Amino acid sequence: MKTWKIIVLAAIVVVIDQITKFIVVSTMQIQQQIVVIPNFFSLFFIRNTGAAFSLFEGAQWFFYLTTVIALCLFVYFIKEIGDLNIWTGIGLGMAVGGMFGNFIDRLLFGSVVDFFKFVFGGYNFAIFNVADIGLTVGIGLVVIGLIVSEMKKKKTVAE
């Protein structure tokens, strides 16, 4: 996958993330809940100063530093490998878009807008946003892409 396509995908993730966050911030009050599917899915507006499950809450310097390091690693990874397989390319685009989406929130507001809330049985899952989806799915796809690449290499060497 070409680098420009990865950048476009990252930009799409950022735009969708920022639009959804804008809608939530402009239409809901903090800690307001809108039940979409009872006992399963709600929109619940919070501002998170931490990571998933509020880990590292208030440690903004940590998030700035890790985001810059991760983005540098992704840029190096893209330049070093060049043309990536589709899984790795889509994964990198989604992950970079997710990082930028949350990074924008942290820079502008000192916190991240989260609003997707799921309940499984009696368990409340972490409240998250579109950027978090991009990060999580993206990293999973990068792993799949790297595994596929290694399997192809091994198959080529074996032949």
Rank of each mutant, 00 (worst) to 15 (best):
Q18R: 15
N39K: 09
Q29F: 14
L73E: 03
G101V: 06
I147A: 06
G58T: 11
I147V: 14
R47I: 06
I147Y: 05
N85A: 08
V75R: 05
Q29P: 01
V13C: 13
D105P: 06
F74K: 01
F53Y: 14
A95M: 15
L55I: 14
G121R: 07
A126H: 02
I69W: 11
I86Q: 11
L107T: 12
F109H: 14
W87N: 02
T136H: 01
G121M: 09
M151A: 09
Y123T: 11
F118Y: 12
A10M: 11
D114L: 08
W61H: 10
V14S: 07
K152G: 01
A11D: 06
L65F: 15
G138H: 00
V143A: 14
G121V: 04
G89R: 03
F77K: 04
I139E: 01
M28A: 08
L84Q: 08
L43N: 03
G134D: 00
D83Q: 14
I81A: 00
L73A: 14
F77P: 01
L71T: 08
A51N: 09
K155I: 05
G97T: 07
V96C: 13
D114Q: 09
F100A: 06
E150A: 07
G110I: 10
L55M: 14
G89N: 05
M1C: 09
Q32D: 12
F62Y: 14
A70F: 12
K2Q: 12
F125K: 00
V143F: 15
I104D: 06
V14L: 13
A131F: 04
F44V: 07
Q60A: 13
R106G: 08
A126S: 11
G101R: 02
G145P: 00
V13P: 05
F120K: 06
K117A: 15
P38W: 12
Y123P: 01
A10L: 12
K117D: 15
L9W: 10
V143Y: 02
C72D: 02
I7L: 14
L108P: 01
I127M: 04
I37R: 06
A126E: 04
I7G: 04
V112N: 00
K153G: 03
